[in-house]
Simulated scan of single mutants.
Amino acid sequence: MTDTILVTGGAGFIGGCFVRQVCRQPGRRVVNLDKLTYAGNLDSLADVPEDRHVFVQGDICDYEHVATLLAEHQPSAVIHFAAESHVDRSIDGPLAFVQTNVMGTASLLEALRRYWTALPSPRREQFRFHHVSTDEVFGSLGETGFFTETTSYAPRSPYSASKAGSDHLVRAYHETYSLPTLITNCSNNYGPYQFPEKLIPLVTLNAAEGRELPVYGDGKNVRDWLYVEDHVDALLTVLERGRLGETYNIGGDSERTNIEIVRSICDLVDELQPAADGRSAHDLIRFVKDRPGHDHRYAIDFSKIETELGWRPRMSFVDGLRCTVEWYLSQREWVSRVQSGDYRRERLGLSAATIG
């Protein structure tokens, strides 16, 4: 019997990687619900076998549509990636983030509750709902310390606040209705197929084209970087063996300042695609006004998932960054296809800085 997983947001960066991995596993099938907004595309799923993958365009806010999909496909698990996910966009347009991340998750949870309640035993006992979240819900760290599963929430952007709201809703459905839930909070992901508004693909493509490389503030904000394939391995581990009602932090053990990232990419672009005029990509770096509410540092303690479930990241940041930069430099046609008409790698997130 084929095991069906419903994936929300499976045409996005992390969701797409999850779909590709699951569809390579014998006996598994994915129903992929995605709205196909600007960051969602099907190019990254072109090689997924059609008999393993059912794509459905739709919105998680559409309760009736979600309920129909659940009844039709009878999934044994649901993993929830669908979200507005870019901090700068949340500064420019916060209400879209509340609508999708909070209201959409609430609508999805209610459809799942009704579906799960009606399942016969033992399918009811085997069902899982896995909510994928972010370390940004915890706010900002100082120079030392790490986020753990018990760190208090302190979101500082509309994006992180909306994700915090969705996390709380998932926990509430577990506590109130006993819905079998799992939550993971991950650090910054990177790798192939990421929409080019995020730091690593944005800097890679701009450097390759000789365009300026804007760096917020002094560039010393710190993030922990997680290769997307490692993240998906962790997600599958939690989905299959995680304790119900628990939260697991997933980190890459790769803290870097933003300026370190930018300079490392410049080194790789200079090596892999040297400019015809001999200039270095480093000459393109420009320090610009900082983003409003820019968190100083994120760092993940992933000892819980390592101790309980035996997972830890395998890809080193040095190797992962090289693989990623090489991929973007060789996939310019993919980049041109996925970019929407209203995004051309311009700076976003200026609204709060220009009001008042």
Score class of each variant (00 low, 15 high):
Arg312Gln: 10
Thr204Phe: 01
Gly242Trp: 11
Gly217Glu: 03
Asp290Tyr: 12
Ser264Tyr: 04
Pro201Phe: 00
Pro313His: 09
Asn221Asp: 05
Val269Trp: 01
Arg312Asn: 07
Arg344Leu: 13
Ala281Pro: 05
Arg286Asn: 02
Val269Ser: 05
Thr307Arg: 14
Tyr248Ser: 02
Gln331Ile: 00
Arg347Pro: 12
Tyr343Met: 15
Arg312Tyr: 04
Ser264Asn: 12
Asn221Ser: 13
His294Asp: 12
Asp283Pro: 05
Arg211Met: 08
Arg263Trp: 01
Val288Lys: 11
Glu229Ser: 11
Glu260Ser: 11
Asp218Tyr: 03
Asp319Val: 13
Gly210Ile: 06
Ile300Asn: 02
Asn206Gln: 09
Ile200Gln: 04
His282Cys: 05
Tyr343Ile: 04
Ser330Gln: 13
Leu309Trp: 03
Arg337Ser: 11
Ser330Tyr: 00
Trp225Ile: 08
Leu236Trp: 11
Asp218Met: 02
Leu213Ser: 02
Gly278Ala: 13
Gly252Thr: 04
Ile200Tyr: 00
Lys220Tyr: 04
Phe287Trp: 08
Gly293Thr: 07
Gln331Glu: 14
Arg297Phe: 14
Leu321Trp: 09
Gly310Asn: 06
Tyr328Asp: 05
Arg347Thr: 11
Gly252Ile: 04
Arg312Val: 10
Gly245Leu: 15
Thr204Lys: 01
Leu309His: 03
Asp301Lys: 10
Asp270Cys: 02
Gly210Ser: 04
Gly242Phe: 11
Val318Ile: 14
Glu260Ala: 13
Val338Ile: 15
Pro201Arg: 10
Asp283His: 10
Tyr227Gly: 07
Val335Ala: 06
Val222His: 02
Asp319Met: 10
Asp233Asn: 12
Gln331Cys: 01
Arg263His: 10
Thr237Arg: 06
Ser340Gly: 15
Ala207Asp: 01
Glu271Phe: 03
Gly242Lys: 03
Ile285Asn: 05
Leu309Tyr: 03
Arg263Glu: 14
Ala234Trp: 03
Cys323Lys: 14
Leu309Asp: 05
Glu240Pro: 00
Thr257Leu: 05
Ile259Asp: 09
Tyr216Leu: 11
Glu333Lys: 09
Ser264Ile: 01
Gly310His: 05
